[in-house]
């Protein structure tokens, strides 16, 4: 995540950021103290976690929930709290 900082000659003018959505190169996963672990066998694919995840960190594969994106998941626990079948556990992050 180390970025080479450009000088004024190379930066776009006006403070514009020309690459849409490039925050995905910034990893907020380092913020976590608790980590969501999903038991995919329990998951019923209701996709509520996708709707309520504030960090776009529910991974979808072939139309189904496939765990979390740990690069960006901040460990807020919303997915675990709202999961109707308790398929997600929050465990202490090991650093």
């Amino acid at each position: 995540m180390t970025e080479t900082k450009k000088g004024w000659k190379d930066l776009p003018i006006g403070g514009n950021i020309l690459e849409a959505g490039n925050s995905q190169h910034y990893f907020t996963g380092t913020w976590r103290t608790y980590k969501p672990i999903t038991d995919l066998d329990k998951c019923i694919n209701c996709l509520q976690c996708w709707m309520f995840c504030p960090d776009n960190s529910i991974v979808i594969k072939d139309g189904k929930m496939d765990g979390q994106d740990y690069d960006h998941c901040k460990g807020c626990g919303v997915c675990a709290a709202i999961c109707p079948v308790k398929a997600i556990d929050m465990i202490k992050e090991e650093k």
Binding site: K6, G7, W8, L11, G14, G15, N16, I17
Partner: peptide, 18 residues
């Protein structure tokens, strides 16, 4: 693209120089 972002100590100075 994005206009008017939060521009802190690490880039604001370069934009003023521009």
């Amino acid at each position: 693209f994005t206009m008017g972002p939060l521009d802190l100590q690490d880039y604001y100075f370069e934009h003023k120089k521009q």
